[in-house]
Computed example of a mutant assay.
Amino acid sequence: MVRVGEMRERVTILTLTEKADRSGWEWTPTKTTWAKSEKTGRLSLFSTVGAGQEGYTFTLRRHPLTPAQALRWRGRFAFVTDLSYPDRGHIEVGCAMIEPMVCTVTRTDIKKNELNRPTLTEAVKLSFPACIVEKYAGFTAGDIHDTTTQTLVAVCPKAVKLAPGEIVAVGGILDDDGEPCRYRVQVPHELSEWKNEYELTREADA
């Protein structure tokens, strides 16, 4: 049983929303409430193929929360991994503490005329939040020079769908010119009801 006095922390519930100009998605605050926070002391394996992150459990008054949402606590982003109900009045929210990065993907939008013939091609840039974790780093020795292949995993909200071969710019990782690093989508993992995961790769000189 959770006592009212134990819920001393303020947490904000976040919901993914599409931007008004349809240029992508973002996390939007929808409600702030009291909660009890507890560090689990173990890694939260919120990704099926990526590295785990610091785990926390938040206890709130019962609320229609789903794993498609997230929490903000003390300025930190909490990715919801599981929900449980210890009693009739409360909900326990398992979370992985990881800050999402703003990513962008550019797609070709082909316009058609009244005869259904393509008349115009436009580049459409979409932005979305993704939690980026490492999978592994490989090393390949070549005849002329050596390259490293970095593989990351982008854990995205379910609304975000990427196709193999698409190029994703990861805003929180910069190259030598100060520009977001560009990764190619390799392997999708889309079986989860609440999230999509994508393996991204980038090669660079060692």
Score class of each variant (00 low, 15 high):
12 T>A: 09
107 R>N: 02
85 Y>R: 13
68 A>P: 11
13 I>C: 01
154 A>C: 02
21 D>T: 09
162 L>P: 01
206 A>K: 10
194 W>E: 11
170 V>F: 07
195 K>S: 13
92 E>T: 12
8 R>F: 12
4 V>M: 08
26 E>L: 14
190 E>R: 08
80 V>A: 04
120 L>F: 10
188 P>M: 09
43 L>R: 09
202 R>A: 12
15 T>I: 05
66 T>C: 04
196 N>T: 02
106 T>C: 04
140 T>R: 14
7 M>T: 09
166 E>P: 00
56 Y>A: 03
95 C>H: 02
8 R>E: 07
200 L>E: 03
186 Q>A: 10
58 F>S: 06
84 S>T: 15
1 M>R: 06
168 V>H: 02
81 T>I: 07
110 I>P: 00
31 K>M: 13
64 P>Q: 10
160 V>L: 05
161 K>C: 05
205 D>K: 06
105 V>T: 00
89 G>M: 12
183 Y>W: 10
122 E>T: 09
189 H>A: 14
179 E>R: 01
58 F>H: 03
92 E>V: 07
134 E>D: 13
199 E>S: 07
18 E>G: 04
118 P>I: 03
135 K>I: 14
64 P>V: 08
74 R>T: 12
122 E>K: 11
198 Y>N: 03
93 V>E: 00
125 K>M: 08
153 V>Q: 03
66 T>V: 02
180 P>L: 09
39 K>T: 14
162 L>M: 05
167 I>W: 14
79 F>H: 13
117 R>W: 14
184 R>G: 05
158 K>L: 12
17 T>E: 13
30 T>H: 09
136 Y>R: 11
106 T>I: 07
113 N>D: 08
87 D>S: 12
41 G>P: 01
113 N>C: 00
33 T>A: 11
87 D>M: 13
159 A>W: 06
183 Y>F: 12
126 L>Y: 08
